[in-house]
């Protein structure tokens, strides 16, 4: 009934269930980039050198950090294989700006309605025929739009459309969703929003 199927119960080796990224071999570049990012996160957690004055302690800290980053990278590559097309960082920056601006709009919108003594709500449902392929991209779209003004994804219809619960159906909700989708599709390296 849902667009995303549960994992196949093959008795042998476990397989990925992400329908989008099955064939993509983890490229060394993506692994290196992620490993560097995770090592940075480790430095953030451990702050080596701040309270370990001696060199052997610092070296041990860094070695453990490298091992931890390697483990995290391995798990990350298996759970979320890198997409065949890399991310577009210009599009990502534009998307971030859009996201932060819309987050503010969403928060102010909800606060205005909550504090208004008349409680101006006009809730309703809307089916949005999402064009991102099922899988990580569509899940990211759902997560992002759940933070956008007036929209909350509640599930998938039989024909694959995402169903949204809207705070106010009089707002141009679908247009906003379309814009979010287009921006997100560019981040993932697709101009038109289809895989």
């Amino acid at each position: 009934m849902h667009a995303n199927q549960l994992p196949s119960r093959s008795p042998g080796r476990l397989k990925f269930t992400d329908d989008g990224a099955t064939a993509a071999a983890p490229s060394a570049l993506a692994a290196l980039a992620r490993g560097a990012g995770f090592f940075g996160f480790w430095l953030l957690l451990a702050r080596p050198g701040t309270d370990a004055p001696s060199t052997p302690d610092l070296a041990a800290d860094l070695v453990v950090g490298l091992l931890a980053a390697a483990a995290a990278t391995w798990v990350s590559l298996r759970l979320l294989p890198p997409a065949r097309k890399g991310l577009h960082f210009g599009a990502l920056a534009r998307f971030a700006v859009h996201f932060i601006r819309q987050s503010m709009v969403a928060g102010v919108d909800v606060a205005r309605r909550a504090f208004d003594p008349r409680l101006p709500l006009n809730p309703g449902y809307l089916a949005y025929p999402v064009r991102l392929a099922p899988g990580t991209g569509r899940a990211a779209f759902g997560a992002v739009t759940s933070l956008m003004p007036g929209t909350l994804p509640v599930g998938t219809a039989a024909d694959g459309a995402l169903i949204y619960h809207c705070l106010d159906v009089d707002q141009p909700v679908a247009a906003g969703l379309a814009r979010d989708e287009a921006l997100l599709a560019r981040v993932r390296g697709n101009g038109g929003g289809c895989r």
Binding site: L126, A157, A158, D159, P172, A175
Partner: peptide, 15 residues
């Protein structure tokens, strides 16, 4: 919502 196809309340922009 699980049973029906896309309901009549379709979005006001084309796909």
């Amino acid at each position: 919502w699980d049973q029906t196809r896309t309901p009549a309340a379709s979005p006001d922009v084309p796909p």
